[in-house]
Simulated scan of single mutants.
Amino acid sequence: MKIIKLLIACSLASAISISCNQKKKEKMTESVSKTPSAKYAQNINPADFTTTIEGDSVKFFVLTNANGMEVTFTNYGQRLVSLYAPDKNGKFDDVVLGFDNLKDYRAKKNFFGAVIGRYGNRIAKGKFSLDGKTYDLAINNNENHLHGGLVGFESVVWKVDDHTDNSISFSRVSPDMEEGYPGNLEVTVSYVLTDDNALRISYEAKTDKPTYVNLTNHSFFNLKGEGEGTVNDHVVLLNADKFTPVDNGLIPTGEIMNVEDTPFDFRAPKTIEKDINADFEQLKIGKGYDHNFVLNEEPKNNEGLTFAARVVEPNSGRTLEVYTSEPGVQFYGGNFLDGSDIGKSGNPYVRRGSFCLETQHFPDSPNQPDFPSTRLNPGETYTSYCTYKFGVTEN
Rank of each mutant, 00 (worst) to 15 (best):
T383G: 10
T216D: 00
S17K: 14
G183D: 00
L130A: 08
P36L: 00
E143A: 10
T72A: 11
L80K: 02
Y84S: 09
G346K: 13
I276T: 04
K103Y: 14
L6D: 10
K270E: 06
G286C: 12
K127F: 02
E30L: 15
N277K: 15
F61P: 01
T387G: 04
D176Q: 14
D195C: 05
K88M: 13
A66N: 14
A268N: 13
I16W: 05
K2H: 13
V329Q: 06
N101G: 09
N184I: 03
S190A: 15
F362R: 07
H291N: 14
F280P: 00
T72H: 12
G339H: 07
N367D: 03
H147S: 01
F362T: 09
E273C: 06
K270G: 02
L12I: 08
L238I: 15
N140F: 00
Q42T: 12
K389V: 02
T207V: 08
L6Y: 11
K5Q: 14
P327K: 08
F336G: 06
T253I: 04
P314V: 07
E204W: 02
D290M: 02
Y76C: 05
L295Q: 08
V189L: 06
A308T: 04
V312A: 03
T324Q: 03
V294G: 02
F49A: 02
A308Q: 02
S384W: 06
T211I: 09
K23C: 11
A66G: 06
L12H: 10
V294R: 03
A240H: 05
K242M: 08
T383Q: 14
V231W: 07
T387E: 15
V235L: 05
V392F: 06
N302T: 14
D247N: 14
G304E: 08
T381E: 13
S202V: 05
Y349M: 03
V95A: 09
P86D: 09
Q78F: 10
A38P: 01
F390G: 06
P372E: 11
P348V: 09
T194A: 07
E358T: 08
R375F: 05
K125Q: 10
I276F: 03
N101R: 00
L137H: 12
L185R: 10
E313G: 01
Y323I: 02
E321M: 13
T188H: 08
L199V: 14
T306F: 02
G113V: 01
G120N: 09
D56C: 09
